[in-house]
Amino acid sequence: MRFGSRVVTVVAVAGFAVLGLAGPALAHVEVSADKTTAGAENVTLTFDGEAESDDAGIASERVVLPTGIAPSAVTLVKAPAGWTFTPTADGFTVGGKALKAGVDAVWKVKIAKLPDGETRLSFKTLETYSDGEVARWIEIQEQGKDEPDNPAPLVTLKPGPSTAPATSAAPTSAAPSVEPSAVATTTPVSAEPADDDGGSTWWIWVIVVVVLAAVAGFVLLRRGRSGSTDA
């Protein structure tokens, strides 16, 4: 019985020791997005800074924005009561009266537009406690590798929709441009025959006059001959 109780005690102590070591490692600053496509607009990011101190509360969170997101494109949506939002040269800070020890810091910001062509956005974060301790969550998580000890909050995005190349309408627009010129060239041609017909009728009248004159001459000639015979 004593041996069994000792085994149970050793196992329990070892278990608590493991939990004690694992506790701080589980405290992270995490971030999630309501839209997870590259290039998306008006995206709300929710940050969750997990408290890791039993004696001090979180007083502020300083976030460094990834390339492609300007501080001017970020606005505050929600933060702990009494906290304020302050843009910085490379990101922003939310902070104010320290939270109670053990209370997580949760805040939300809106991004006007996520970068195009980026699928992994890291938000380096410095978490400051009321006792001056600073937890630096700034190590970049690389794809395919183990998570570092102090990982920066990461948002994984889907690629944005590809833009289909525009088709050229030049070949189709060239055909109509030929047709009007063809119509224009036929217009004066169709008008010319009317002028020719009107101007060429004079010779018909000349022939008629010549024929009538010949007939009249022939008739007069016959009469003259018949008159001389009678005499």
Rank of each mutant, 00 (worst) to 15 (best):
T84P: 04
K97H: 12
I138K: 04
R136W: 09
L26C: 08
K35A: 11
V64S: 13
T44S: 10
P148L: 03
T167L: 13
I138C: 04
A105C: 06
F85M: 05
A59L: 03
Q143A: 15
G96Q: 09
G15F: 00
P66D: 10
A98G: 00
V189G: 08
V63P: 02
T44N: 10
A89R: 11
K145D: 04
K145C: 04
V29E: 09
W83M: 03
T36L: 14
T9S: 02
T201W: 15
A98M: 03
G68T: 10
A70Q: 09
F92E: 06
T128V: 06
F218H: 12
V208R: 13
F16R: 00
S60R: 07
Q143R: 13
V10G: 05
A89K: 13
K110R: 15
E142R: 11
W83D: 03
S162G: 06
K100S: 13
L26Q: 12
T201A: 15
S122E: 09
R223F: 06
G160A: 10
T9H: 00
P159H: 06
V64R: 14
S60F: 00
T185S: 09
E142F: 05
H28K: 11
S226R: 14
G102I: 03
E133T: 15
A89V: 06
S5Y: 11
A73D: 14
A152N: 07
P148T: 02
L212T: 09
G144R: 06
E127C: 04
H28T: 04
S173P: 06
P193T: 08
A112Q: 12
V13A: 02
W203V: 15
A152S: 10
E192L: 15
L221M: 13
L65Q: 05
S5M: 07
D54H: 05
L26V: 12
E30M: 10
T167G: 04
A166S: 09
P171R: 06
